[in-house]
Design a protein around this nucleic acid. Structure first.
Lengths: 238, 238
DNA sequence: AAGTGGTCTAGACCACCTA
DNA sequence: AGGTGGTCTAGACCACTTC
């Protein structure tokens, strides 16, 4: 069993994605949905609120809920999808090489970024993401060891997020991203196939757990021609 | 008068920003807030839900609501803040020059982007954003004329968003952004002080109204060294 | 066991849109 | 006037954390 409002959310979301509701048409009214799902209006409204937040519908007061074209927004509806996963999805022949996997003590800048003590242990992971044989993305990850006890190359080759959420059962709650463009460092030139590009796109990622503790700091360094970031922002009401 | 839950939201948000609640400490429990604000629990929960979505607090089941460090997240809490406004905020001496303001018919690619008919009228606006005397950002905006009847250079020099939302009273509801890095066009070289940079950061913006109609397409072209994008994504529950 | 937030209910009234 | 979504209420029960 599950939350009722999430069940309703999923059922309607599936129906929209499956073409059961035409884009531009209107969803049944909240009153109708109350009857159809045999529940209270507030529960229906929670489900619709989630649908609106995730880009499936648009609620308009006095009119109804308009079905949006979900296929247009098939990208990372949640901004929490990691870019590396995105690259994997797009690239086809994606390969990850783990160049470094070490336990370190944080230097002063890392202490600030991770809010970690100087004598604490931090995992440092360097990964190269290859797409179709070209080294496109260089990921530097820093995790607090207190949260993740053992980390293997095998885990790093996959999605560390998946490992944490599914294997360790910890919920990642929110992330702050900063995107800038910088000149490549020596490291970038060694790790990436820059092909003459004199810039890299740097995505800094601060990842927090459900209890608001900072867990991870990641720097993802991209060759500029293969970089694409998609954001879907909406004004949310309660 | 106003929504009760928004009033409560604002009062608590102000208190957090003003230092009335220490980061890391806990907010009063929902039950306490019910008594303090003389309202129902669901209303308190709506206010707290907004606070959580906007990065002021983090709710943890069974424990309480943790106050986050709002000063760390002082940037575009809503992803809908326009980059130009951001640049204005940061830059100090920001100047906007309107290079073009014309009514056009959309070409085929614009017809697709704006979902507009070939014989409809579209405003085309070119604006250069100067910061401290350097031409840093080149904005190309396309608006459907049916929504905005008269547009002046004066309006374009300020924030077109403000004009639409406050003067015209239309609510911008959500936006989709795409960020890529491209080689500069001739136009970019003419309009911007590129100073040898061989890339520009291109932010494409699709802006929708409350009723889900697409209204505006913007391309914001940035000199790479001055570009910074900040995103704050959170997993939201109802 | 007590306290916290998470879900759910049944009903009320309001604001907005369409007719 | 009737339908729609937006807000608000008072109460219930559940899940999780802390003691």
């Amino acid at each position: 069993m599950q939350n009722k409002y999430l069940q309703i959310y999923k059922e309607i979301a599936d129906q929209i994605q499956g073409g059961g509701f035409e884009p531009g048409s209107k969803l049944p009214s909240e009153h109708d949905l109350v009857e159809r799902f045999q529940t209270s209006r507030e529960t229906i409204r929670k489900a619709l609120s989630q649908l609106a937040q995730n880009g499936f519908i648009q609620k308009v007061q006095g009119k109804g809920s308009i079905v949006l074209d979900a296929r247009k927004f098939d990208f990372p509806v949640s901004g929490l999808v990691s870019f590396t996963e995105l690259a994997d999805m797009l690239g086809g022949n994606a390969v990850t090489e783990v160049e470094k996997l070490a336990l370190i003590h944080p230097d002063s800048s890392l202490q600030g970024a991770l809010q970690a003590a100087p004598d604490s242990f931090i995992w440092e992971v360097h990964r190269i993401r290859e797409i179709d044989g070209e080294r496109i993305i260089f990921d530097k990850d820093f995790f607090k060891k207190m949260y993740v006890d053992n980390l293997t190359e095998e885990i790093c080759r996959g999605s560390i997020y998946d490992y944490i959420e599914n294997e360790l059962g910890m919920a990642i709650s929110f992330a702050r991203k900063e995107i800038t463009v910088e000149a490549p460092t020596e490291e970038d030139r060694n790790y990436l196939d820059l092909e003459g590009y004199e810039t890299v796109v740097v995505v800094k990622n601060f990842v927090y757990f459900d209890d608001a503790s900072l867990f991870q700091y990641t720097e993802s360094r991209h060759r500029p021609d293969k970089f694409k970031f998609v954001d879907f922002a909406r004004r949310t009401k309660a």
